[in-house]
Amino acid sequence: MIRQSPVTDAAFVFAGYLVVVGGVALYAVTLRRRVAKAAARARAIRAYAAGPDDAEPAVTERRAP
């Protein structure tokens, strides 16, 4: 008998929603982590610039976190 795709509509819909919502959520969570990391580094640099101690700066060059 001629048969069509056995995958149901619900599976397609679920997969599509999962990809989009999951993708955005994953990006958002990663972004928050990147921001937190960069903020900590900026604070460390400011502390170094202001402080009298001659410790090495945390960062001397821009890197993508």
Binding site: M1, I2, R3, Q4, S5, P6, T8
Partner: peptide
Amino acid sequence: PGVLPSPLSV
């Protein structure tokens, strides 16, 4: 309904 038999009914 589609003109082909649905996979769920075959």
